[in-house]
């Protein structure tokens, strides 16, 4: 096992971690501020990818595609917040899960109705395609490096927004005591719509960015949604910092264990059972990680409430 391979796999883990963060950030914000479990977050990821693929197909521009993804997902987020989600803030989590699960079905079949059942095509922009050679002779796809960059940039931007702006103060206050900030004259329903649209836009951005190297198809958001839930449980619900650390942990664990565990097992057993046992255990690795974190800190790494 060469150092080059290990470094390359760490980069892969980082890349999948920062993309997960874009999903998890919105999910954790929405849960933290409004106390809402939004299963339809994966649908917003899908909306972003489809909007990007459609716009890229017509205009050929990746930048326009990204803008379209942000706009479409934010708009879809704002619309469902006003039309459906707003009625659910006072309900218990079971009602929220039921209603947002219905939204998944509506989004999936709606998307199929508009775009058809066949996967769409969305490609990496020419300027970012192909591999680059990093110091040490590592060949790594430029686009994935760009994803890491964009993810870190968004994380920094989000930190600035939450910690350094007026809206950020309102969001943090909303997490702590929503009656109080409503009493202080903040238009709470407008703030909620805004937070929801922001979370949706981040999911849409992730969908579009990842869609370029994956398959843009109906139902693409749900597997990511499950990972994003694991991330926010590990990071502590409501914490952006927790989501960031959690996403990197999940990304790295998922990638590294999947590759190295079969190799390690081969030291003790035959190749064939080692490969299949290794890959089976590897697919459990992030859930094992989650349980270990929860045993150690029941409210997650940075969770405020128990």
């Amino acid at each position: 096992m060469s150092t080059i391979l290990i470094i390359e796999q760490v980069l892969n883990g980082l890349q999948s971690g920062v993309m997960l963060f874009l999903m998890a950030a919105g999910l954790t914000l929405i849960f933290g501020v409004m106390g809402l479990i939004n299963l339809a977050h994966g649908s917003l990821y899908m909306v972003g990818a489809f909007a990007a693929a459609a716009v890229a197909g017509v205009t050929g521009s990746f930048v326009l595609a990204l803008i379209a993804a942000l706009a479409a997902a934010a708009l879809a987020g704002a619309v469902i917040e006003v039309a459906v989600i707003r009625r659910l803030y006072d309900s218990d989590h079971l009602d929220q899960v039921l209603a947002t699960f219905a939204l998944i079905l509506i989004f999936s079949e709606g998307t199929r109705w508009v775009f058809g059942s066949f996967p769409l095509f969305l490609d990496i922009p020419d300027a970012l395609s192909g591999p680059v050679t990093l110091p040490g002779g590592i060949q790594y796809p430029l686009y994935r490096l760009a994803l890491i960059g964009v993810g870190l940039l968004v994380a920094f931007g989000l930190w600035l927004l939450i910690e350094r702006t007026r809206i950020g103060i309102q969001i943090r206050a909303g997490e702590n005591d929503r009656e109080m900030i409503a009493a202080l004259g903040v238009d709470i329903s407008k703030l909620y719509t805004l937070v929801f649209a922001l979370g949706a836009a981040l999911a849409g951005l992730a969908g579009a960015l990842v869609g370029a190297i994956q398959s843009v198809q109906v139902g693409m958001g749900e597997p990511v949604l499950i990972l994003a839930f694991v991330v926010i449980v590990i990071g502590g619900i409501g914490s952006i910092k927790g989501a960031f650390i959690g996403a990197l942990l999940v990304g790295l664990t998922d990638t590294l264990v999947g590759i190295f565990l079969p190799e390690v097992l081969k030291l003790f057993m035959d190749a064939a059972p080692a490969t299949s046992a290794g890959s089976s255990i590897a697919s459990m690795s992030i859930y094992i990680l989650m349980s270990l974190v929860l045993i150690w800190r029941p409210s997650g790494l940075f969770g405020a409430r128990a």
Partner: peptide, 21 residues
């Protein structure tokens, strides 16, 4: 090499790195 990936996996960067190596 012989590798089993996760069902429904969407990112193959790790496997492609293995192929390269």
């Amino acid at each position: 090499g012989e590798v089993y990936t996760k069902l429904g996996q969407t990112d193959y960067a790790a496997e492609i790195a293995q192929i390269r190596a």
